[in-house]
């Protein structure tokens, strides 16, 4: 019984060696394709070419500059998206009337693809950072809002009764009951939101920008500098993974009590 459990556990959690091995395999296949197909560098650059291009982009400071721009957009978008979505979610959960009035609009707004309205937002708010932050916030907004609502609904009524018999104020109920009870679901929403925010920033930058990793992709494409496109894409992947990892760490730290179950 016990042995079996340990076995399934170790099967589920791969050892850390899996990641470098997978990476090596990926590079190997990539290099193999380049050698086999003999494609020109502007269609498929080799790993070394991308590596060298990365070195150039780091040395001339362009990678850092564009990464910083994208990071600013992603983080500000996350901040405002989560802030407004969780505030609105809290208000909606407190007022049935408000929920009934607003939910058709919210569902409709969710049906609008952000990529489609990104150009509009750029027309209205310019091609600077502002419009990208707005796009990021919009992509983050809906999943966080839904998770806030679901999380607050999951608070057991019996615990609300308990807080009422203890004469807890609204603020205390939020701090001591609703927030911790909804946190697992809320953090789930943030985890999704973190990666969506990266997508939002790139969509915005591709639609029109003067800096950022999405802009770098456009530059690389325009100059047939495909190695640069690769550099930008890989940086974006790394960024998304880092953000996802940070939320995971946050979950591990804040939800220690869930591990006992």
């Amino acid at each position: 019984m016990k042995n079996k459990k340990i076995k399934t556990e170790s099967e589920r959690k791969p050892s850390i060696w899996v990641y470098p091995i997978a990476l090596l395999l990926f590079l190997f296949v990539w290099q193999g394709l380049v050698l086999l197909l003999k494609l020109p560098a502007f269609i498929l650059p080799s790993p070394q070419q991308v590596w060298m291009r990365l070195g150039v982009a780091i040395r001339d400071g362009s990678l850092a500059r564009h990464l910083l721009a994208t990071l600013t957009e992603v983080l500000s978008g996350l901040f405002f998206g989560i802030l407004t979505a969780s505030l609105l979610g809290y208000l909606l959960s407190k007022s049935k009337v408000l929920e009934n009035i607003l939910s058709p609009f919210l569902v409709a707004s969710q049906a609008v693809p952000v990529a489609a309205i990104a150009p509009l937002l750029i027309i209205w708010f310019g091609s600077g950072v502002m419009s990208k932050i707005l796009i990021c916030s919009l992509t983050v907004f809906f999943p966080v809002l839904v998770n806030t609502l679901v999380g607050l609904h999951a608070v057991p009524d019996s615990m609300r009764d308990l807080m009422r018999t203890l004469h807890a104020t609204r603020w205390q109920t939020l701090r001591y009951l609703e927030l911790p009870a909804a946190l697992p679901i809320l953090l789930g929403g943030m985890r999704v939101g973190a990666t969506l925010s990266v997508i939002g920033a790139v969509v915005g930058e591709l639609a029109g920008a003067d800096k950022g990793l999405g802009f770098l992709i456009n530059v690389g494409r325009g100059q047939y500098d495909t190695a640069l496109v690769f550099v930008a894409v890989l940086t974006l992947v790394l960024l998304a993974i880092c953000l996802y990892g940070i939320v995971l760490l946050l979950e591990k730290r804040l939800l220690r009590w869930q591990e006992v179950k």
Binding site: S158, M159, T165, L166, A168, Y176, L177, P180, L255, W257
Partner: peptide, 27 residues
Amino acid sequence: SVGLVFQQANLMPWRDVWANISLPLEL
């Protein structure tokens, strides 16, 4: 002031025993 006990213990899973008992005083 009332102390209410339900059929299910109704404890807060994110608090340990100590913190569950101290909750009314913290409030």
